[in-house]
Write a protein that binds this DNA or RNA. Structure first.
Length: 186
DNA sequence: GCCAACGTTGGC
DNA sequence: GCCAACGTTGGC
């Protein structure tokens, strides 16, 4: 089993949104390297560190798991989507995504600052300078270390984070679960 | 809003 | 295939 780290802008689709929806298609990725990881290497059952970017604070907010693989990202076929790709065909879709399911939300976000401060996490991919990938592999030891940090944060379980529904995502992203719910952009 | 870093595009 | 220009990401 592999481990991963996936970024989502918190205001677009947060761990709380995934907790509510239970499952979501990881749509709207338009980077070939990220796509290749999803298409070629992710397997059902792989665990994912769920990272909030453009957030306050930015960092790992919880854990998700790959629940389906090899799905065509529906936004590429939607002419009204910002992620519409007219060059892609249904017969041979360019953008392949996975579906992920909620596993857990940490009592507190493990901030980027906290990650950087950990000796054990030196060399972690997401900490590399200039890293802009939204889907990247994560060393299993790093994964375990971050999970431990997330679970041992001081806040009482449930006493934290924004209340469910508080995420006023202007444009819901990644709501393209198996059922093909309305999608958004990022 | 700024800026560093990287990806993509397109002329040649 | 090179490379400059441009666009995007994402931390701050």
């Amino acid at each position: 089993m592999r481990h991963w780290l996936c970024k989502s802008e918190e205001t677009c689709y947060s761990i709380t949104d995934l907790e509510r929806d239970r499952r979501a298609g990881w749509d709207s990725v338009r980077n070939y390297q990220a796509r290749n990881f999803m298409r070629d290497q992710m397997k059902v059952g792989d665990l994912i560190l769920y990272y909030h970017s453009n957030a306050d604070p930015t960092g790992v907010a919880g854990i998700a798991r790959v629940s389906r693989t090899g799905l065509a990202d529906p936004t590429q076929f939607d002419p009204r989507s910002e992620f519409h790709d007219p060059k892609s065909s249904r017969d041979d879709p360019t953008w392949i995504m996975v579906e992920v399911e909620f596993v857990e939300r940490f009592p507190e976000v493990v901030t980027l600052t906290a990650l950087r401060a950990e000796k054990a996490l030196q060399g972690m991919t997401v900490l590399a300078r200039g890293n802009r990938l939204s889907v990247m592999p994560c060393d299993p030891d790093h994964f375990e270390h971050v999970r431990r940090m997330g679970r041992s944060s001081k806040a009482a379980p449930g006493a934290t984070g924004r209340a469910a529904g508080a995420s006023t995502a202007r444009e819901p992203r990644r709501a393209s679960a198996a059922g093909g719910r309305a999608l958004g952009k990022r």
